[in-house]
Simulated scan of single mutants.
Amino acid sequence: MIITDIRLAKLTVPLVTPFKTSLRTVTEIDDLVVVIHTDSGEVGYGSAPETPLITGDSHSSMIEVINKVFIPLLMGSNIENTWQIAAKLQQVIPCHNSAKAALEIALFDLYGQLHHLPLYQALLMTNSSKPLTSGCDEPMMLKTDITISMNDFDSMLADSNKAISQGFDVLKVKVGNNLNDDIKSVIRLYKAIGKNVDIRLDVNQAWTAQQTLHAAQCFIDNNVIIELIEQPVKADDISGLQYITERTEIPIMADESAFNLNQIKNLVEQKAADIINIKLMKTAGITQAVAIADYCESKNIPCMIGCMLEGSIAVAAAAHLALAKSRSITKIDLDGPSLGKYDPVTGGVCFDKSTIYLSNAAGLGITAIDGLIYL
């Protein structure tokens, strides 16, 4: 299975409601899609959103580096050598994590198709192992949380109640606008719906270490149970993360501070986080994410699999990774496709509100994508 063509396209899906965090407001899922063709007729898909405030990647920068650097590197490669190809992809140029992620996803989609395995099983193969089989044709299943955007309290409560009515039992609540308002809103929200769901807080770097400890103590004093607090301080404030982690019983999760394996080793060694959030757009794709999950398993550090505001192509790959590395990835935050008004992707992974179904189709199992606009 030899790569003969690589094409780029755009895919846009409007959101049900605007996605609001302390960093940005977004009204649609806007993905750059990578389509890799082979000499034997198989097609592999990958995608990436633009997240310049987080990864530094825009679609224009991705398009340029893919066309000028990555396509010449990949053309003519044999999909049998996907792990080696991915290693070259990571080494040829620094940064450009989202572009690398989109390409790695498409490569591993083809790798699964080559071995007639769903991606999660293909990721469990070693160089010496025979292809694995699941023993059944029933789809595998994951349960995801859903994001409640930062908003006025009444809107957040309405969004939470709607999510609960749809079967979500874990809410990831965005905060970080004003500390006192954040605390009051979370306490009110918990008292209104906390018995029905678990609540995670995502601060998106908006608090200081002292503010985080103050908020955590307020929650404890008011008998508000918070499952975790995600990235409360600036990404480079590792000492702040360590200070918080040492002083509160609420688990602290690193997100923007945890892009690559070296950063995560540093966090673990300094005991600066209780949980690590793995996202394919941060890790530059599947290979680094696998390494991080394996390392965290060796250190008994639980992981969450997360996503940016991205569609079902990349999120499908993240779901397969979560299933393959379920011993370390114990928390699922893959609600991106559920936030869209529809899913333009047919086949493979089905995103049904809180439930994610993974079929045993080869690779990602994608059979069609509506609305692709080729560049």
Rank of each mutant, 00 (worst) to 15 (best):
A322N: 11
L323S: 11
L323I: 13
A324I: 13
K325H: 15
K325T: 11
K325W: 11
K325Q: 14
K325R: 13
S326A: 13
S326I: 14
R327I: 06
R327M: 06
R327V: 03
R327H: 14
R327A: 13
R327L: 13
S328E: 03
S328M: 13
S328V: 12
I329Y: 11
I329R: 10
I329D: 07
I329N: 02
T330W: 08
T330V: 15
K331G: 00
K331C: 10
K331P: 00
K331M: 14
K331D: 15
K331W: 04
K331F: 11
I332L: 09
I332F: 03
I332S: 07
D333G: 03
D333A: 08
D333H: 06
D333C: 01
D333P: 07
D333S: 12
L334M: 02
L334Y: 06
D335V: 03
D335E: 14
G336D: 00
G336W: 04
G336S: 11
P337Y: 04
P337Q: 10
P337S: 06
P337H: 08
S338L: 01
S338G: 10
S338K: 06
L339H: 08
G340T: 03
K341M: 05
Y342I: 12
Y342L: 14
Y342G: 04
D343V: 03
P344H: 02
P344D: 11
V345L: 09
V345G: 04
V345I: 10
T346G: 02
T346I: 14
T346Y: 11
T346C: 03
G347P: 04
G347K: 02
G347E: 05
G348M: 07
G348H: 05
G348R: 04
V349P: 02
V349H: 05
V349D: 08
C350M: 14
C350W: 00
F351S: 09
F351R: 10
F351T: 10
F351E: 06
F351Q: 02
F351N: 07
F351I: 09
F351P: 08
D352W: 09
D352A: 11
D352V: 08
D352G: 05
K353S: 13
K353D: 08
S354P: 15
S354H: 12
T355K: 11
T355S: 08
